[in-house]
Computed example of a mutant assay.
Amino acid sequence: MSAALVLQSDFGLSDGAVSAMYGVARSVDSSISIFDLTHDIPPYNIWEASYRLMQTIIYWPEGTIFVSIVDPGVGSDRKSLVVKTDSNHYIVTPDNGTLTHIDHSIGIADAREIDEEVNRLPRSGASHTFHGRDIYAYTGARIASKAISFTEVGPAYRKDSIIKLPLHRARITDGLITGLIDILDIRFGNVWTNISRELFQQLGIEYGDKLKVTIENQSKMIYNHIMSYGRSFADIPVGEPLVYINSIDNIAIAINQDSFARSYDIGTGSNWLLSIQKAPK
């Protein structure tokens, strides 16, 4: 029985690119179950691709194969990898930083460089701009269908050679907790941080407490206001901001029934810092 194959990309669904990857996978083994993580990663946004993998992967059965293609360096000398995670999942992706959050939060057990002479779609021509179809979907499907084993992907690749994006740990200093804006809850515009619930609780904050929240981007102040800590959106009047615990047990910021990210033009990544402390009484 084949493993599930989960696809992620920045391709969108307005043309045939994703369908072509489905077709390649089905041509390897027509019984493969194929699913979409998302194809709405903003173009070239490796950081978001990295986060979405981490957000999703642990909820899938062990042995699931993930193919992630956000590949602005396609056709260059960047490497193509398959990694086995400490959670016993597999990820097929370019070595361009896409594995950053996985390495940090879950761990990488082993890595292989794809031998592109062997693991490439037959009769795929001389194109060097669609490795998502010709190499990644093809290789992922071959692993999922057990046509090849993990070790048959290609030569071993040193884990410490895998490219990582800058990723700073959340920390507490003198009653001030600081972390990154990791990602946006896109549909609702909520801001998700890398500040864990466990770290946040070290401040001794209770529901209903007032908090001072600041957001900076490259040392420029973007937001600096007082808001409440709530259990859920229902704790706060419509239109008011709140701090809350999100669905992956990290600290998040929202406006009840509005978009915090759109209201303040918030972005994500290692340059976006968010700090929280108890507001003075």
Rank of each mutant, 00 (worst) to 15 (best):
I248R: 04
Q202R: 12
H168P: 13
Y229F: 15
A147L: 14
I135A: 08
L176V: 07
V243C: 06
R171Y: 14
I195G: 04
G140E: 05
I143T: 02
R133N: 12
V191N: 04
L167V: 05
G132H: 05
K164H: 07
F130Q: 03
T173C: 14
F130G: 00
G140N: 01
L165Q: 04
E152K: 02
I181K: 03
G179T: 04
S196W: 10
G175N: 05
P237L: 13
Y207V: 00
G239P: 06
P241I: 04
E152L: 08
S149R: 06
Q218F: 12
S247W: 07
R133I: 09
G132I: 05
I163E: 07
T129H: 13
I236T: 07
I181M: 10
R187P: 15
E206V: 06
F150W: 04
F233I: 06
Q218T: 08
F200N: 00
I162Q: 10
K159R: 14
Y244D: 09
R169C: 13
H131M: 09
P241W: 01
R231A: 14
A137D: 02
K164T: 01
R231L: 15
D160F: 14
D235L: 11
I135W: 08
M227W: 01
Q202E: 15
D185Q: 05
I226M: 12
D174L: 11
A147T: 01
I162D: 10
N190A: 09
I215T: 01
I183V: 12
S149A: 07
P241C: 09
G239C: 04
D209N: 03
N190D: 13
Y157T: 05
V213R: 05
R231D: 13
I251A: 08
P166G: 04
T139N: 10
D249P: 10
I253K: 01
N194D: 11
A170K: 05
S247H: 03
G208L: 14
D209T: 01
E198T: 03
D249S: 12
P166L: 01
L199W: 07
S149F: 02
A254W: 00
L211D: 06
A252P: 10
I248E: 11
S145N: 02
V238P: 11
I143Y: 00
S145A: 09
G140K: 00
I255S: 02
V213C: 06
P155M: 12
R133W: 14
R158S: 15
T173G: 09
H225G: 12
G154S: 00
E240M: 08
R171T: 09
F188W: 08
S232P: 08
D185I: 06
A170H: 03
I255H: 06
S219M: 15
I172L: 12
I143V: 05
Q201M: 14
T178N: 09
N190F: 12
P155I: 06
T173A: 11
S247L: 09
T139P: 13
K159S: 10
L180Y: 04
R187A: 14
G154Q: 02
L211K: 02
